[in-house]
Design a protein around this nucleic acid. Sequence first.
DNA 1: CTAATATATGAACAGTCATTCATATGTTTG
DNA 2: CAAACATATGAATGACTGTTCATATATTAG
Lengths: 118, 118
Amino acid sequence: MDADIERCGFLCVHEDTVKQVLEQLPADEKLYDLAELFKVFGDSTRIKILYALFEAELCVCDIAQLLGLTQSAVSHQLRVLKAGRLVRPRKDGKTVFYSLADDHVRTLIAQGMEHVNE
Amino acid sequence: MDADIERCGFLCVHEDTVKQVLEQLPADEKLYDLAELFKVFGDSTRIKILYALFEAELCVCDIAQLLGLTQSAVSHQLRVLKAGRLVRPRKDGKTVFYSLADDHVRTLIAQGMEHVNE
DNA sequence: CTAATATATGAACAGTCATTCATATGTTTG
DNA sequence: CAAACATATGAATGACTGTTCATATATTAG
């Protein structure tokens, strides 16, 4: 494994470029966190939930009916969205209303849609 | 399952809001494609590759050494990135150089980083 | 307090996915 | 043509993840 990389390194690697890129690369932890963020967006159920929250604050039950999902499935996904700080709960008696956490969510989704619509 | 939703629908759903949101919701296929796009970003190896390509055009071997991965792993991931139209190949003899497909990639990643850095 | 209700959570199962290993394809050099 | 090399690909495996089912927690109504 390591030997493979070494062998390749002596033959085809463009060393200067590699060195320069390596300096500019963010810390591994940042890149990992970034991937985790995108992973949260990378599920159609969660995307639907986020898109629904574009329009209005909704309770768990609203979302379930809206998307034809069970309450449990929605609750599990809201948990993921909450952990990713994409969504924020507001408790009112028995019901919990969810809304988008901040405008990054809107921007990111809009930007993604642009790429898809091409 | 359906019964659950019905039962819930008669009790706690905010019908007006749900109806309005439903009208604004994009087509299922669009939402699915959007999730697929984000799924491609949702892996730390692929994020690293994309970030590396921020700085320079790189060949498969460069990327492998840069990130300490096998040639095969990199090639497999480049295939995914290419399928998502995030990356573009340029062939030059034996070697294949990859670069970012368009500026959406930069924008999306930058936007994501902003959210992470908070 | 008890029943009803809205949401949350844990375990289990099925499907997905990233990596590895072996090998194939395509290109250049001698 | 044959050998060397850069990249691509297929199959197998282990890890992860979304949904379901059952149940727990929390709040309100009677």
